[in-house]
Design a protein around this nucleic acid. Structure first.
Lengths: 317, 317
DNA sequence: CTCATTTATACTCATTATGAGTATAATGGA
DNA sequence: TCCATTATACTCATAATGAGTATAAATGAG
């Protein structure tokens, strides 16, 4: 095809080294049980299910499904792609005209928690890795624990101060739960998470609380959390995390678990009502207090509809 | 590392074939000039700048920058990753213990249009590929041209009808500009775009208007358009597309070009005012009519802030 | 120089959406 | 029976939106 020549050669001489690339598929599986958001991990909480893309895989998604099922025996429902990154230099050696390099493609999956087989397979509380992201019971953790350490990095730089304040909702800036990834990256840059020291970043003080993970898996988890928090607001995906029927409070607890924030009960219900995604069942939830009506998601929701609308001030003709 | 064994071997026997993967980097460069949104193309509008990931590339992003500059001599500003996909079977042959496979990683870049070198390098109107996405002058194009063809595919299926209506804003459903990708994919599934026939999909009628592209580049462009339309609403990225200073009407035209919709002038200005992202300059734009004040973006905007807030009804303590 | 034409800005106003509560209804158990 | 608990229904002030109208400052034709 003449297109290929035009495409490859314009402006420079082509290299002849053929590069061998190793593609790794990584799965972040999230479930919410009660009020705890969890991820499925291997190696006692230090890594996610992962494995190389193989010839037998029909697609990237199929590959992810295969690896997760092989390693955890957990069935997989909804999944979506998160991010792809290349390991900057690791193993970039040349042998003959072959060079080795690694690319990681990460996926986010939503399911319901099931006791999974495998010795080291386990569901871990997401906030074990990011204690500062859970502001439901104690929104002052950042103030109390890591603000001082961050202050050391900020020093007298107004620009750094502005960045920290915007990211962590300090000093008048509002807290934005979607910025989970930015916060993790900033902490890494500051050298306050253990991974930074492990990777040879300079260390600017005491490490802050939060469990470490293999390679950059914790960063991938932060990506997943950010994506999920953002998406839950404009797409009906909590659906994937809930049982067939549930009470409104259960649904609220699920969203709160992901957002890391308490929600206003009646306003949350009003929002649900306006979205018209739920329908009543004939049943009621047992338990203390007045029994709650049970709801289910409407089938019509299958048409992957956005639940919020535009923010642009559109003109009518 | 003991982690690696636990990770790879749980539940199945490991394959020994080493897979050679070819990673292709693809760049969708967008600029808006006047009221026309454009993409930078090669091969007379049929493909995007692209090339394999090489050893000399420090990162995926660096690789994209290198290829774009090599092929188009166009400087590159802001870029972000779009999507990664694996070519399902093409070239999946095995030679010895080596197998060949291709992965494409696409990027979206925002710039200002510059006359670019290279014979076949050109800026193309995005709506050349998706005429139905531009509803500024004529929102009835879908009704007039492609609705009948889609109707043939829908037949008597209520589910198909619901899908088409939700996607294309027909029959009472509101038009949602963010669904550009879903619309393209649906048209492909219906066999109404030329790529579908080329790829061996069954054809359900006449092809609809819109230029074809190499491989799945048109699908990638649809991804870029969807992403850009969605992102422009909650992130201050138009910034990258505008000159140093500009009038409010110019900014409005730029957003309209991307959204494919007319905006309400005074409400758009009120929105801008509330976001506080702009500041006045001392200058005025020349031209017919009363001269417009020129604005520029505030420097403080560097702190990559979200411009919209949460949609969740948060509870205060 | 005056006025029609054009584009820029400033306001207005009804309707919705949101944040924050208060009041009332069903339960099970002491 | 009364109380602790949880579920639902309303209320109300304020902010955000959608849709216009009114006024200001240029240019160019006559």
């Amino acid at each position: 095809m003449s297109y290929d020549n035009a495409k490859r050669d314009s402006g420079s001489v082509m290299k002849t080294v053929i590069q061998t690339i190793h593609a790794e598929l990584i799965a972040v599986l999230v479930a919410v049980t009660g009020s705890v958001p969890r991820v499925l991990t291997l190696a006692d909480g230090s890594a996610f299910p992962a494995g190389p893309l193989e010839l037998t895989h029909r697609s990237l998604q199929a590959g992810v499904r295969a690896w997760v099922e092989r390693q955890t025996h957990h069935p997989l429902g909804y999944i979506e792609q998160l991010y792809t990154f290349a390991d900057p230099t690791r193993g970039a050696t040349v042998a003959g005209d072959q060079a080795e390099r690694s690319i990681s493609i990460s996926y986010l999956g939503l399911t319901r928690e099931i006791a999974s087989g495998g010795d080291t397979v386990s569901w871990q509380n997401i906030y074990r890795y990011f204690p500062w992201e859970d502001r439901r019971s104690d929104p002052t953790l950042i103030e109390r624990t890591i603000r001082a350490e961050m202050g050391r990095w900020v020093g007298t730089s107004a620009e750094r101060a502005a960045r920290v304040n915007a990211c962590f909702g300090l000093d008048g800036s509002p807290w934005n739960e979607d910025l989970a990834l930015s916060r993790y990256e900033l902490l890494y840059e500051m050298g306050l998470v253990r991974e930074a020291a492990r990777d040879g970043q300079s260390n600017n003080g005491e490490f802050i609380p939060g469990a470490m993970m293999h390679a950059d898996h914790r960063r991938i988890l932060a990506t997943a959390l950010s994506r999920l928090r953002a998406k839950i607001k404009y797409r009906a995906i909590v659906y994937e995390l809930m049982p067939e029927s549930f009470s409104l409070l259960e649904l609220q607890r699920c969203v709160e678990a992901l957002a890391g924030q308490r929600l206003h009960k009646s306003n949350f219900r009003r929002l649900l009502a306006s979205q018209n995604l739920l329908e009543e069942t004939a049943h009621y939830a047992p338990g203390v207090g007045r029994p709650a009506k049970l709801f289910r998601f409407r089938a019509a929701l299958l048409a992957e509809r956005a639940i919020a609308g535009t923010r642009l001030p559109i003109a009518r003709p």
